[in-house]
Amino acid sequence: MSIIYNFNTWKVSGNKAPQWSQKAYKLMRVNINKRGYTGELLGAIMYLHFIKGMTVTQIRKAPTGYNLPSVHIRSIIKGTFSPDAFIIFMDMLETEPEILDRLFRTY
């Protein structure tokens, strides 16, 4: 099954694909070039901590944070690793929690 991107509909069923907000796009576009971390990874780690309530050691054992150092995970959670991603995530947590669930519920 694939999406026709020009019209944002599924080819087979014809249903509309779920849309993201502008903040979700901004979060996914955050890129830390010097370390290779993407906005998706940063958002997934913050989702696991702030919404699912996982600790740093639990996140390190999860598939998302398996090879990440504990120091990086702590700094992502504190917001010092990427302040832009942290601010966008916290804003989405207050205003658009359903979109966060749609983005990261599989993590």
Rank of each mutant, 00 (worst) to 15 (best):
R29C: 05
A85I: 07
Y47S: 06
M54L: 15
E96L: 04
N8L: 14
R35T: 09
S21D: 03
L68Y: 03
V12C: 09
N31T: 06
S13V: 08
P69G: 04
S82L: 08
E96C: 03
F89G: 01
F50L: 14
L41N: 04
Q19H: 06
R35C: 04
I4G: 07
V12Q: 14
P83M: 13
F81Q: 01
M28I: 09
A17N: 09
K78D: 06
L93S: 09
V12N: 14
Y107A: 11
L93F: 11
A17V: 15
F104G: 01
T57E: 13
A44Y: 01
M1E: 14
A44N: 08
Y66V: 06
A85H: 06
N33S: 12
A17L: 08
T9C: 11
N15K: 15
N67Q: 10
R35E: 10
I77H: 02
T9L: 10
A24S: 14
M1V: 14
R102A: 03
I76K: 00
I87A: 13
K16P: 03
Y47A: 05
L48D: 01
L68I: 14
N8P: 01
P83C: 11
I88A: 03
G39Q: 06
I99S: 00
M46G: 03
K52N: 12
P63F: 07
V56R: 05
T80I: 06
L42G: 01
T57Y: 12
I4Q: 12
A85P: 07
T64Q: 12
I73L: 03
H72C: 02
I51H: 08
G39A: 10
P97T: 05
T38K: 09
F81H: 05
P69I: 03
N8Q: 15
I73Y: 00
G43Q: 04
T95C: 07
T57Q: 12
I87E: 10
I76H: 00
R105E: 08
L100V: 03
V30R: 07
L100P: 00
Q22S: 13
T80H: 09
K52D: 08
N33H: 12
I45F: 09
I3E: 15
T57D: 11
D84I: 11
L103W: 04
E40T: 10
